[in-house]
C-alpha cells in the first residue's frame, strides 16, 4: 500500500529536534523498519522528524573507557569499523546477520534499539555486552542499561521527548569471548531463535560473568539468568554446557509463531547454547 498522508520535518541539530518533537511526531532515522510498516497503513504516522543530519548523533569513538557508538551509526558502518572490531567484536560478527546489504546501508543502531524487535540482533547484542544507552532530551541526558531499556514487546524505557543519542559498550578485555549464532529460515531473515553469547574465560579456563542473551524467543532480548548462573565459575566443559542447557528452560517463555510452537524455540535455544559454548571452548577441551 502507499504510505498514508504524513508530515516531514528535518532537524539539523538537537535544538531543532527538541523544537520539532511535539504531539504526533515520530523520529525517523534509517527508516528501515518504520517506513516498511507505514506500507501496512496500520496507524496514522503524524509527522516524521528526520534526525539523520544531526551531527551529535554520529560517530564512533573510545572515550572515558567505553566504546561510544552514535545512534545514527548505520549497520554497514558498524560492521566495518575498526574500533568496533577491536572493542566489541560481537557487533562486528552480528552485522552480517542483519537483513541484506541495502538495508544495512540505511538502518541505524539507534533505530534498531528504539524499535526493539524481539528478533533483532542488535538489542540482544546490547544486552549481552551490558551496554548503556545514552538517552537525550531537551536540557539533559540520562544513561540506562540495555537490560533495563527493553521493557516489553516493541516497548522501551524511552520517554516522550527522548531519543537515543548513543550506545556505550564496555571495552572487551583480552579474556572476553563472544559469539552470535542464529537459526533463520533464509539468510537475512529474522531468526527463529538466536543467541548472543558473551563471557569471560579466565586463564584457569573458568567462566566468569556469562551473559547469554537469546533473541527471537520472547518479547525482547532474553538474558538467560539461570543458564548464566549455571555457568558462572565453571570450566567450560561438556558438563557445564549440559548444566546450562538444563537450566535454560526456566529462562524461556517463547511464544508460538509462524515457524513453529514454543517447544521448537526452546529446543533451538538449547541447540544454540550448546553450539555457542562449544565454539568458545578451548581447543584442548574440545579434543577431550
Amino acid at each position: 500500500m502507499k504510505w498514508p498522508a504524513l508530515g516531514y520535518l528535518r532537524a539539523s541539530s538537537l535544538d531543532e529536534l527538541w523544537r520539532a518533537l511535539g504531539d504526533g511526531a515520530q523520529i525517523l532515522a534509517g527508516g528501515q523498519t518504520l517506513l516498511a510498516t507505514l506500507a501496512f497503513r496500520l496507524s496514522e504516522p503524524g509527522t516524521l522528524v528526520d534526525i539523520t543530519r544531526i551531527p551529535e548523533l554520529r560517530g564512533i569513538s573510545v572515550t572515558g573507557g567505553v566504546l561510544r557508538v552514535g545512534a545514527l551509526t548505520r549497520h554497514a558502518e558498524l560492521g566495518r569499523d575498526a574500533l568496533v572490531a577491536r572493542h566489541a567484536p560481537l557487533l562486528t560478527q552480528a552485522v552480517p546477520h542483519i537483513a541484506h546489504p541495502a538495508i544495512r546501508n540505511r538502518g541505524t543502531i539507534g533505530g534498531s534499539l528504539a524499535y526493539a524487535d524481539p528478533a533483532a540482533e542488535l538489542p540482544a547484542c546490547a544486552v549481552a555486552l551490558d551496554a548503556t544507552l545514552v538517552l537525550a532530551r531537551e536540557g539533559g541526558e540520562r544513561r540506562v542499561k540495555a537490560t533495563d531499556f527493553f521493557t516489553g514487546l516493541l516497548t522501551t524505557a524511552l520517554e516522550p521527548g527522548e531519543i537515543i543519542a548513543a550506545v556505550e559498550f564496555p571495552l572487551a578485555g583480552p579474556s572476553q569471548r563472544a559469539v552470535i549464532l542464529e537459526v533463520a529460515r533464509r539468510s537475512g531473515d529474522y531468526a527463529m531463535a538466536g543467541l548472543a553469547a558473551v563471557l569471560d574465560l579466565g586463564a584457569d579456563g573458568r567462566v566468569t560473568a556469562p551473559r547469554l542473551t537469546f533473541f527471537g524467543v520472547g518479547d525482547g532480548p532474553v538474558l538467560a539468568t539461570r543458564a548464566n548462573a549455571a555457568l558462572e565459575g565453571r570450566a567450560l566443559d561438556a558438563a557445564a554446557i549440559a548444566a546450562a542447557q538444563a537450566a535454560l528452560d526456566a529462562d524461556l517463555d517463547p511464544p508460538a509463531d509462524l515457524h513453529g510452537p514454543p517447544a521448537m524455540k526452546r529446543h533451538l535455544c538449547r541447540v544454540l547454547l550448546g553450539r555457542a559454548l562449544q565454539s568458545l571452548t578451548p581447543a584442548t577441551e574440545q579434543a577431550a
Partner: peptide, 18 residues
C-alpha cells in the same frame, strides 16, 4: 534497489523528501 550517495538502498524505504 537504487544508489543513494554511492550506496545501494531500497528505494521503497526512503522518503523522497529526505
Amino acid at each position: 534497489t537504487v544508489r543513494v550517495d554511492g550506496e545501494i538502498v531500497r528505494g521503497c524505504l526512503v522518503l523522497a523528501a529526505s
